[in-house]
Design a protein around this nucleic acid. Structure first.
Length: 420
DNA sequence: TCTGGGGTCCTAGGACCC
DNA sequence: TCTGGGGTCCTAGGACCC
């Protein structure tokens, strides 16, 4: 039996509170990029009825009335705290799959004879002591059940925070208490289908007719049902799979109408995408640029993309920039108010195995060295210290991020100050 | 005025092969 | 009545995740 132990490692509000204790017991929300939607809420904010994903502008009155503390998302901070928590788990647990910035699965199958609930408590208190981050832990015989246990754990009081679903008799009740759309893998469409067919909670889904599920929801649906029944179908993956594509895209802080500004933005995203490739030791064969207007506005709409197959797979910013700028020009259409653009790099391969094209005349070795130096400087002096002029200086289209906390743990000039 | 960003997996259908 | 059978590769689109 493999025991998945799913930990919701940090929520963004906890990260903000860690460096700003005044936020304890206050309603706090964290907004998505561009200060768009709500992506994290403190319990106090939930009690005020704030839903996940609600656009911030719809909350203005509520924010004012209840003095809700609002933060722009600070991924530099959250990412750093996340890696501290993951490092702690690595020391304490037999095997860890880092599932996302805020979740991990632990393989506890080697601890069969232990008291798993007590082990969970030990994990929790150690992580809290070492990193200051409160985590909730769900334990179950499959990943899907561990996720459900985690959801139940989150509702517990601060003092508890661990839910163990390995005991069969209790789990019936627990499963019946979980809405079907809250099961991992059941999104809006499947939830609608299931509810229309009389299945509204996790227990009913577990006991569904498997042939019907397979027919309507494919093998993905069948796996969910089996996992709910305790049969593990989604293994723990200890080595991260190599990425197949990488994408950098952003909504603009304000509409963009000129080709020059659009190209600045695309150049910025292409540079960032190239950095990601180099960080992962990858190179791309294919580059796609896309642009679109604001679908929420009642105005002329436009979407287009342009895909370039590169002569040789590359992670060289200068080279990718050239193709990206040309692609942008090709799809730019005057007279529209652009809201978003993005750069997608695909057909990724390990950089070392890239073979040069016989007719290729670029000086790849020199370009590589230049990129190394650039990455080093930006790592030491801060992102975008050194960048290509094509990315622009003032960047008036930049995303909004008006209420961001400081980079307390990753930037010397923004360290928290202790008062005597 | 104001509505996120970055991913993966699966399936169906078409083209093509012997 | 009955229209070959089996395979691969590619793509677009759908669904989901955090």
């Amino acid at each position: 039996m493999s025991i998945g132990n799913n930990a919701r490692l940090l929520d963004y509000v906890s990260c903000e509170r860690l460096f700003n204790p005044k936020l304890e017991e206050q309603p706090v929300i964290v907004l998505s990029n561009n200060d768009g939607c709500t992506i994290a809420r403190s319990n106090e904010a939930k009690k005020l009825g704030i839903q996940m994903g609600v656009p911030a502008f719809k909350l203005r009155q509520l924010i004012q009335d209840h003095n809700i503390q609002v933060y722009s998302s600070n991924y530099t901070l959250y990412g750093d705290l996340s890696s501290r928590v993951m490092a702690t788990l690595d020391q304490l647990a037999p095997a860890v799959e880092v599932y996302s910035i805020d979740e991990a699965f632990l393989d506890l199958s080697t601890l069969k004879n232990h008291d798993l609930s007590a082990y969970g408590q030990h994990l929790r208190s150690t992580v809290h002591q070492w990193t200051g981050i409160p985590v909730s832990i769900g334990i179950g015989p499959t990943k899907t059940l561990a996720k459900i246990a985690n959801r139940l754990a989150k509702k517990l009081s601060e003092a508890e925070g661990v839910w163990n679903l390995t005991n069969c008799t209790e789990s019936l009740q627990a499963l019946a208490s979980i809405d079907v759309e809250d099961v991992w893998g059941i999104g809006r469409q499947y939830a609608k289908l299931l509810r229309a067919n009389g299945m509204s909670n996790a227990l009913q889904l577990r006991d569904a007719d498997q042939r019907w599920i397979k027919q309507k929801m494919g093998v993905v649906g069948l796996r969910i049902v089996l996992e709910l029944g305790g049969m593990s179908c989604i293994p723990i993956e200890l080595c991260p799979q190599p990425k197949k594509m990488t994408c950098v895209s952003r909504s603009f802080g304000r509409p963009v109408e000129s080709l020059a500004e659009l190209q600045e933005a695309v150049a910025t995203y292409a540079s960032r995408a190239a950095e990601k490739l180099r960080r992962d030791g990858l190179a791309a064969w294919v580059l796609t640029v896309f642009v679109n207007t604001n679908r929420f506005q009642d105005e002329p709409q436009y979407y287009n993309c342009s895909t370039t197959y590169l002569p040789v797979a590359t992670s060289d910013t200068a080279e990718l920039l050239g193709y990206a700028l040309r692609a942008t020009e090709a799809i730019f259409c005057a007279g529209y108010r652009y809201k978003k653009a993005g750069v997608l790099l695909s057909e990724l391969v390990p950089a070392q195995v890239v073979q040069a094209n016989f007719f290729d005349e670029r000086e790849r070795h020199r370009a590589q060295k230049l990129m190394q130096v650039m990455d080093q400087i930006n790592a030491q002096m801060g992102a975008q210290t050194l960048k290509f002029a094509a990315a622009g200086i003032k960047q008036p289209w930049q995303v909004k991020s008006e209420r961001k906390s400081k980079r307390f743990t990753t930037c010397w000039s923004e360290l928290p100050v202790a008062k005597a």
